[in-house]
Design a protein around this nucleic acid. Sequence first.
RNA 1: GCGCCCAUAGCUCAGUCGGUAGAGCAGCUGACUCUUAAUCAGCGGGUCCAAGGUUCGAGUCCUUGUGGGCGCACCA
Length: 505
Amino acid sequence: MNSSDSAVNPIDTAQDPRRVKLDAWRQAGVDPYPHHYERTHHAAQVVDGFSGLEGKRVTVAGRILSWRAHGKSTFFHIQDGSGQIQAYAKADDLGAEVYGRLDWLDLGDFVGLSGDVFKTRTGEVTIKIALFTLLSKSLRTLPEKWHGLVDKELRYRRRYLDLITNAEVRQLFITRSKILTGVRSFLDARGFLEVETPVLQSLYGGAAARPFTTHHNALDAEFYLRIADELYLKRLIVGGYEKVYEVCKDFRNEGIDRDHNPEFTMIELYVAYADYRDIMNLFRDLLIDLAATVNGRPTIPYESRTLDLSVPWKEIPLLDAIAARTGLDLTDTDPGRARASARSVGVDIPDDASYGKVVDEVFSQRVQPELVEPTFIIDYPEEISPLAKKHRTKKGLVERFELFMACKEVGNAFTELNDPDDQRSRFMAMAEAARQGDAEAHRLDEDFLMALEHGMPPTGGLGFGLDRLVMVLTGAPSIREVILFPTLRPTSVGEAVSHDPESDV
RNA sequence: GCGCCCAUAGCUCAGUCGGUAGAGCAGCUGACUCUUAAUCAGCGGGUCCAAGGUUCGAGUCCUUGUGGGCGCACCA
């Protein structure tokens, strides 16, 4: 078992100092877990508003993070949602008995403080305590104050400690929230309708991925957790809504690494009467808007550089990008010749790779690592884009773009395929690929085809991963740093608190 | 799934050649009425991730397992 194990064992010693102090409060007639507390200010309001608050009485509340006792006077800091503020307690002000109760406080306890605002000799805004109230007794030790919590496993499994200790982590998830709010307000301002579609699906689709499966007892039916919400959102376009989007948790039963978490947040949007060019413009405007929200200017951090998003974004057809980077002409769609070309420039290609797979492989190995500046890669082979509409002029290609910046894919969009017969033949091709052993091949969805047969207007659609986007906008090195509780292997601790769901109410 | 690395006190980390485990913070006792990584004196605290093995002797070496990190593969 790992090192976190002992820390989650029950605290069992009756001599535990925090338990002793808890009893002391109770024996003094004080409830160590009161129900409510009325504040007048947050810490940051007091610090920032000092000039107007000097000498005035304020009431704040927060968690004790540091403690410096000097006999008959004591300094400590508390932290609330807005930040930290120092408090100063003096025996002369409080009286010996009340001052003595400071001994029953520990780092990690929540307290409410009332007192007058002043500045110490060293210039720090401080509250001179007239009254203090225990708001919640903490029974466990906080991580070390100087280094904070460093161990990544502990940071992810017990994120609350990470948030208490590491201010930059606390800030990052505020930023994530602002990004999500920014997406919503951008789309809402343009007349989009936010909708919700099923997570439990009897037939999964909309992406190439392996699903999680689950079971519904009363229906005695297998369900999949969705891998995308594309096919349901298109049904809503069929139904007459013209601009819809969904913020959706998707689930893909695949590997975990720096860029992938099994559950992740996808945002998909669909616009009736639009094509992929319209979507491109919308997406660029959105990202510039978000970057400005996060970083103050339309820029993103990338390694030691700053990328300016306000310059024109590059736009390169996929096969041109490959040709420019490798010298290969991959317009010939014969799989054997495509594999041979790719191998001739040293790209590793499996023997059963289809033409589309070869293109994808060469691109991701040779081109994508170079795509630092924002770049739209456009016009993909039909074979690897079963839901995108045929290109209006380029044979064998579809109208599709993926956006890359900081070498990451941050979005995928097409002019949506609305010809039901073409869609059916694409599904049939995917079914054939599935028979050839492609576990991620798209499944044939008769219900979706029926919807298309009723008629879907010309439509442009876009999907982008919020987690990826947060990584790119903030420069986070791992997807686990932008997900509050990333998926980790279960521990024996997790098993100990779990129970048999079949026996539950 | 494969390769490499890591796991020692609540937290952050040392631990030499294999000789029975240390520091700082946190905690406890005492001193101290403007400190801020407060200071000073003293004290307590360990399933060295687990199970085997080698050895007179294992935190240290070997094997297997568990958890994590990084890279590769797959994917977004």
